[in-house]
Design a protein around this nucleic acid. Structure first.
Lengths: 362, 362
DNA sequence: TCTTCCTTCTTGATCGATCAAGAAGAATAA
DNA sequence: TTATTCTTCTTGATCGATCAAGAAGGAAGA
């Protein structure tokens, strides 16, 4: 981008000081410390600035001198357009935005470069700290963040070592979701998982793949489901478990369509996100499968879409907006490390019911 | 936020240069211009950096020296949490994010301060240019942007003077939407407008208020509706026209509920956004008013919600994502001023039909 | 052999502000 | 009167990098 340097170099604080007949520091104080000079002089300096078309102290120079950027960097695991379309990420952004707006901090959304293993943006962004969301353990970007040495707060990252982390008890929440279904009598499940590794492209989850899981959130939720399975003597690996890459609603829909058309379809579906659950719901609707009579579905997140879906989705409510708020506050206060765990709640709505067979018996 | 200056001042390029036994420029080149020094020397410098825990050239110093920030500033008329919940704004952000990611630019979302008339963020943000969205003509922030002197590109702002503007022909698009309804035979309308001024809180729109409209988009859409009205000899001000502040779906729902319960309800509703139209749809559903048999509804934007609504919403499709892309490209290229007008299209779906009375006659 | 060119690296100046320390003058206290 | 404090303003150093210009040494060309 060509700067606006048509002919002459831009006007500086020194120019303004000279024009107003004062020193640089006094001119600077006119902008930043009104109490350090008389009101009339300040007025004169500001009107001289107006006349000279001086836009105020150069932000870059100020930042260099003061060491403060006035912005927080956001690092996402996924691409930016994805972030702006995922309801959970957006709820988070609302929380972050709320606090940043209040504290007059800018939000710098850093470009993720998937080609280069370490995004240069983490090194070159003028920010006072970073918020990272859903970055898998061991990702190169974490090393970059560590090298950069600025305060970092993570969201939804268990075992985060670079700073505080805001999480929920994913294992317990998932357990509760699954337990709700086993309590209703379900024994035939389909599980739709979020991404398990940074590079995977989706597909069946086997016993062996559990150890390779990079995303702690996915792992804990899966283990939560498993614990509920085992309590009613279900072997998790007898159930259908499919990883859906990129939290794709369309992919979930396709997978569930396949299940529902198979000889012995599941009676209940666990989605690790509302998006995945809503994909399942679509598949059911298309095939004329009644939810919840023929198929129970439980989501995760409790996004707006869960409420307005027909039938409304039974799901795990997690305080996503509050996650964003808290993480931002922690970053601004640069508090000590530690895991901050927020409460979740299972919201039973209209998408779950006992399986048909059992209903008939009862 | 306390910087990470535990005890000693942070390590600089000069320190690295000394440690590696080279000059500052050579050390700098190791990071920025690999072709300017031999490969072995570069390797040695980088590994020395690693050993010293040097995080790479300080972004603020680099920015000051080079004059480039590597970030684009976004200025919204509304608060940040609102931006992250409005479907149209999000579509725009996807377009912006796509290009920024590709060009390795960060997106700096600037805090809007509604208390202070001129947001200091515009003066203090380290950015290379600004994208402004839906800021009303005459807003103080525009003066600040002008003073700052950086390239600016506007989106959805007609008569923008500080740089290029990406718009659609709102008048023609609105005309087409309304014409669709008058063609179907409707003569009793309810019109839900977006904000007309920066300070208004909603309410009936009268002949007198037309002149005071600050948001060019709202004005043009309104005039487009009016033109269609006048073609079938309807006096616009005989129709119900209500401004809904903040594009609030809930407020729209309330207003439409009132209309539908009035002695002579409208047979058709024009919403200046899909959100407003969907609010109308909700009101109709709650009251058992059949859409489209008893009430036709037309929206504007063609967001995702329009497609999945039941019935799917007839609306004006505008290329919002493309608006974001184009505006960002224009800003990065710092092209000459000029208005860039994108195409729109009326998408007729299931929410519109002839009015009942006419159906009976026909 | 002498000149020219290229590669590789260095020096001093500079980007535009803020900070630390202190000076000048007026006001207050002893 | 002298000492002390307060207000108001100034000077020189500094934040940490990049740039422009040029030097040293070797390779290539005349």
């Amino acid at each position: 981008m060509a700067a606006a340097n048509g002919r002459s170099r831009s006007i500086t604080l020194a120019d303004l000081a000279k024009a107003a007949g004062v020193s640089r520091t006094t001119a600077s104080n006119a902008f930043n410390r009104p109490d350090q000079l008389s009101a009339e002089l300040r007025e004169r300096i500001l009107s001289t600035a107006q006349a000279l078309n001086y836009p105020g102290p150069n932000p870059m120079a100020r930042m260099l001198r003061t060491g403060r950027a006035g912005a927080l960097g956001l690092v996402f695991a996924d691409s930016i357009p994805y972030a702006f379309s995922d309801p959970a990420t957006l709820a988070l952004l609302r929380g972050i935005g709320e606090i940043c707006e209040r504290e007059h901090e800018a939000i710098a959304i850093l470009p993720v470069d998937h080609d280069i293993s370490v995004p240069p943006a983490v090194y070159t962004a003028a920010v006072d700290g970073f918020l990272v969301y859903c970055v898998p353990n061991g990702a190169p970007v974490l090393k970059a963040l560590k090298e950069r040495g600025l305060p970092v707060v993570a969201i939804d990252q268990h075992d985060f070592t670079l700073g505080p982390s805001v999480v929920i008890d994913d294992e317990a929440a998932a357990y509760e979701a699954c337990r709700h279904l086993t309590d209703l009598g379900h024994r035939d499940f389909g599980v739709l998982t979020l991404d398990l590794t940074d590079t995977s492209r989706g597909g069946p989850v086997t016993h062996d793949s559990i150890g390779d899981i990079e995303f702690a959130v996915s792992k804990r939720r899966l283990l939560g489901y498993f614990r509920a399975f085992e309590q009613v003597s279900i072997n998790p690996f007898d159930q259908r478990i499919i990883e859906i890459a990129f939290n794709s609603q369309r992919a979930a829909e396709g997978v569930v369509r396949g299940w529902l058309q198979s000889p012995r379809p599941p009676t209940a579906i666990l989605g690790m996100s509302d998006r995945l659950a809503l994909g399942a719901m679509r598949a059911a609707r298309e095939l004329g499968v009644d939810v919840p009579k023929d198929l129970s579905i439980v989501g995760f997140d409790d996004t707006d879409q869960a409420v307005i879906a027909t039938p409304p989705l039974t799901t795990v409510r997690q305080p996503i907006v509050e996650k964003g708020r808290l993480a931002t506050k922690l970053l601004l206060e640069a508090r000590r490390s530690g895991v901050h765990c927020l409460k979740t709640e299972l919201v039973v709505r209209g998408s779950t019911a006992p399986p048909r067979a059992r209903q008939a018996r009862g």
